[in-house]
Amino acid sequence: MNIENDLKSTARAATAAPTDLEGLSAAVGRRAAADGILDLAYAEIDSPLGTLLAVATPQGLVHLGYPDRPVADQLELLAARISPRILESARDLDRARRQLDEYFAGRRRRFDLDLDWQLSAGFVRSVLERTAAIPFGETRTYGEMAAAAGSPRAFRAAGRALGANPIPIVVPCHRVLRSGGALGGYGGGLDVKRELLTLEGVL
């Protein structure tokens, strides 16, 4: 008799069984967070704009990605810029999901979430932090944001800073327009900017 052939032909039946990937990730994520070794948690969040990728560190929401970029690309970039210790963990993004749902349903005007600003530095961060304070339904100009960040003439740099916003919607860069009232630019595409401003009753 040939033992090797018997082992080969019976091994799969002896060891194969479905693995519950979601359950495993959730359990590992829970334990890793408790041990302080989960650097990034992510979840995909359904919205009228398509599926958003929400990513948080233990400090707070660090990235919100539009569906025009593949999730794998966004996560790889975050792995390189922050840490590769990344797990899918819907639980850690529950609060963000709920507040985004409410915002899109017209039931929330202000986000109450911890933010992690580590992907932005210097003038960019300064512009974005001031942008975070623009109220629902109001708009500012690029020049006003530049001035608020301490460099009144740097309106182009302010535009670039807003274009690099890693946490759009929650940090409402869509509320910043050109001085004549034209929409200007938007990282997620002008259609998205228009949709958000319509939702807020500006357009």
Binding site: T19, L21, L78, A79, A80, P84, R85, I86, L87
Partner: peptide, 22 residues
């Protein structure tokens, strides 16, 4: 941070937990 090329850890779970479980 890990080595610059390290993929997100979740991709290791997705790709290899079946083999590890077996």
């Amino acid at each position: 941070s890990g080595p610059p090329t390290a993929p997100p850890f979740q991709t290791l779970i997705d790709a290899h937990s079946g083999a590890v479980a077996a």
